[in-house]
Structure formats: C-alpha cells, structure tokens
C-alpha cells in the first residue's frame, strides 16, 4: 500500500469573513507554502470590509463580544497542535490562548474601569463611557508571530473596533491559520481582516486611508517607516499606537493602554429636574 498523499493548504487572505486570494494574483513562498502577497487594493478592500462590520460589532453587547472572544480561545485551544506544527513554541501558543481569555473578560469591565459618573458642580447627571474608535489598522510584530498577532488583534476588537491587520511578513502562516480560527468562532465577518505580504506595500495605504480611525504600529521595526506612517496617519488624525520597543515582553501583563488608545471617551450631560 502506498503512503497517503496529504492535502496541502492554500494560505489566503482573510477579508470580510472570506478567504480570497490577493486580487493581484501574486503570492510568495514561506515554509514551502505559497502565501498571498496582498496589494494596495486588497488593503482598501479590507478597510471597506472592516468599516461595514463596525456597526454590528460595536453595537453588539459587551457580553456578546466577550462570549465570542472566549469562543476564539476555545477554538484556538482545539488547534493548539496545529500552531505548534507550524513552528510556534508550545508556551507561546498557550500564552496566546490565555491572552484571548484575558481580553474576553475585559469586554464588559473596561467601560466600568475606564468610564464612570463625574461629580460636576451643578444639577446634572454626567457620565463618561468609552466607545470604540472604529476601524483600526494594525501591524503585527515580527515575533512572536502568534502571540504578537493575538496581542494586537484582541485589544482592538474586544471593545468593538474592527481591525485590518498586516501579519508578520516572515511568519504569515500562523496569521492565516488564526484567521481560520476566527472564521469558526462566531466572529462576524469583517471584524478581523488579515493581510499577508510586504508591509511597505499595504501599510502605507492603511495609514493614509481616510476611513481608518487608528493605526497600531506595534510591529513596525523600521523607525523611518514608522515615522512616515505616523505622518500619513496625521492627515485625518488617526489615533496612533507607536512601535513596541525591541525588548518588549509579550508575555507580561499587557495593561490597558493598548485598549484605551483605541477608544473614544464620550461624556453625556443631562439636567436633573422635575
């Protein structure tokens, strides 16, 4: 009996809940697999998909978003071995799973921790509450490929943003595989969109895009490129998360800043009277 011939996977983009090839028809070779080489047009399509998903996702209850993020952790746990097989160290996969769980719990707590009633000097009810800023364009760090990717996606979406993330060009397989996890986790299409390929091709388009509300430059190691992207982001005053320092400890408690930078605080006043 001859050995079974394995079915190989095609690594495609993840846009609007679907897995299209790059509209440019290009790919590049990573770990013996052809990975889509996203174009500027793919980046624009991803922004359109992300924008379309904002209303539903931001409008979902915090409880619902928390449930879905936890579901992502469940799905990821089930695929643990697959990520290990792709080269991710087991403890990194574990940390990535745990990070989803950590962020899942924030969905209905951050508004309490970060918002609240303000005791204004007058007969007014005054309440501040955080809201998602909208569409976030994020650059995942080169490494750790999976944990770093999860660490930029989860804080963006837990509060109701949608995200277009440029995966690490050198290690895109984890990103596409994570997209498969997301696609099977009840996450509405378009909430997370994953682009693979060259950062220099997609990210400037995202940073300059006038329908993007924030950029997370965490994974931009090139200081000059980061500055250039920040300049582009200034055109419509995108909220900016600057690149992470090279020695950033991805296993440490992430803190709130990654979430709060991508939030708007809305304060509502109302008189108190009869």
């Amino acid at each position: 009996m001859s050995e079974r011939v394995a079915v190989r996977k095609t690594y495609k983009l993840f846009i609007g809940g679907k897995f299209p090839r790059s509209e440019s028809g290009r790919s590049y070779l990573v770990q013996d697999s052809n990975v889509s080489l996203a174009s500027r047009k793919d980046a624009r399509d991803a922004v359109v998909a992300a924008r379309a998903a904002v209303k539903g996702w931001a409008g979902a209850t915090a409880y619902n978003r928390g449930q879905i993020l936890y579901r992502v952790a469940e799905m990821l746990e089930g695929r643990r071995d697959q990520f290990v097989a792709l080269g991710a160290p087991a403890d990194e996969v574990d940390a990535a799973i745990d990070r989803w769980v950590w962020y899942a719990g924030w969905s209905d707590k951050l508004p309490q921790v970060y918002g609240g009633a303000n005791p204004v000097a007058g007969p007014y009810f005054n309440l501040s509450a955080p809201e998602p800023t909208g569409v976030v364009a994020a650059v995942a760090p080169e490494a750790p490929a999976l944990l770093g990717l999860v660490s930029v996606i989860a804080p963006a979406i837990v509060t109701g943003n949608t995200v277009v993330v440029a995966a690490s060009p050198a290690a895109p397989l984890a990103a596409v595989t994570l997209a498969e996890v997301l696609a099977t986790s009840d996450l509405p299409g378009g909430v997370v969109n994953v682009l693979t390929g060259r950062l220099a091709e997609t990210v400037p388009t995202l940073a300059a895009h006038m329908d993007v509300n924030a950029v997370d430059l965490t994974g931009v190691a090139d200081a000059e490129l980061a500055a250039e992207l920040e300049v582009k982001a200034a055109e419509n005053l995108k909220r900016v998360l600057r690149p992470a320092p090279a020695d950033h400890d991805w296993y440490a408690d992430p803190g709130l800043t990654r979430m709060t930078t991508l939030l708007e605080t809305k304060t509502v006043w109302h008189p108190k009277g009869v």
């Binding site: 303000n118 005791p119 204004v120 000097a121 007058g122 007014y124 005054n126 501040s128 605080t265 304060t267 006043w269 109302h270 008189p271």
Partner: peptide, 10 residues
C-alpha cells in the same frame, strides 16, 4: 443643555 463644562468632566 449645552456648553456646560466642569473640571471633573472629560
């Protein structure tokens, strides 16, 4: 109401 400000209010 409109144009109300207070140091405690972001």
């Amino acid at each position: 109401t409109f144009n109300k400000f207070d140091p405690t209010s972001p």
